[in-house]
Amino acid sequence: MTDTLDLPLTPPPGGEVLYQSDRCTLIWGDCTDPAVIASVPNHYGLLCTDPPYGVNFRSNIGRNFDLLAGDDGSVDWAVVLGSWARRLATHRHVYVFGYTPAELTEPLQLGPTAELVWDKLMTGMGDLSQPWGPGHERLVFGVSSANPAHGGTARKGMLAARMRQGSVLRVPRKNATAVTRHPTEKPVALMSQLIESSSVRGDLVVDPCAGSGSTLVAAILEGRRAFGVEIDRKYAELAVTRIKAAEKIAAAIEAA
């Protein structure tokens, strides 16, 4: 892993490709940058991301994590993700954590939507003055209608590789002491379930807020291609390490 102490902390305009292979591209860059948005291929297969929620999140797990970039409320993430959704093939799927369908339907130009719940199977810290601790996280599922010119399946969003399933996704999150890579890291098993349900092998899965790379890793392991952007250099470098490991696993599976 590259020593980030000697590297600039702010990505250049247009971003910098940190890693590229047949399976994955990771850009160190600002996903609000129009030049970065323009770098993602048109009519890709799935938008799946966990953007900052604008709540100034700082982990209290040993104070190991800094404030998340873009989490100070200054970025209208619905508008930003709308720009990314306009490059998605029409009738393909979107998953966004931390929002409601009402907040995303118009800016992302979504057709059918649903609110899903990630049941973490354990209780988080939350506000310790309250009698209830958070044990879930919400996310939005939507079907893009942003750009019919990009083409897409005629089944209008009915692309699920799995049978129709319920709106509660039960996947355990790491306990506090195991959270060492990223404060809001999502389990690969959770992201794999979303990717398998809304794409087919060979599709391009895009995550403009890649963090430590869980979505990209899950896409590779599910036989999809991945395209991610991360603004924080240390998380981007960590994601590259994880991507390379996932690619080795995927290659071994294919060779077996």
Rank of each mutant, 00 (worst) to 15 (best):
N175K: 15
R170D: 07
M163S: 14
G62N: 05
W77Y: 07
S167N: 14
G157H: 03
T123M: 11
I27P: 09
T184R: 04
A236S: 08
S192F: 00
A69P: 01
T32L: 05
E247A: 04
D71Q: 00
E16L: 08
I253L: 13
V17K: 12
D207F: 01
Y99K: 13
A35Q: 13
I61C: 09
Q130T: 10
G111L: 01
G126I: 03
A239N: 07
L26Q: 10
A256F: 05
S129L: 05
A246G: 09
H91A: 10
T49M: 07
N64C: 08
V188Y: 03
Y95V: 01
L46W: 02
R233W: 00
A85F: 00
C209G: 09
I243G: 12
V200E: 15
A69N: 07
I231H: 05
W84M: 15
L7D: 04
G14I: 00
R23E: 10
G135P: 02
I61D: 14
V205D: 12
G126Q: 12
S83W: 08
G54C: 03
P131R: 08
P208N: 12
S21K: 04
G228L: 03
V94N: 07
Q109R: 15
I231T: 03
A149T: 11
N42I: 04
S167L: 11
A252F: 06
D22H: 09
P8K: 05
Q130R: 13
E137Y: 02
P51M: 06
R242W: 03
G151K: 09
V143S: 02
N42Q: 14
A176L: 11
L110D: 07
D66L: 13
A251M: 10
G73L: 03
L18R: 05
A85K: 00
A250H: 04
W84N: 06
A251K: 10
R173N: 12
G213W: 01
V117N: 05
N64F: 00
G166K: 10
A146D: 07
M163F: 07
M125I: 13
I37T: 14
L67Y: 09
N64S: 14
K234L: 10
V200A: 15
G223H: 03
V143G: 04
A176W: 08
L139D: 08
S197H: 09
S59E: 06
E115A: 11
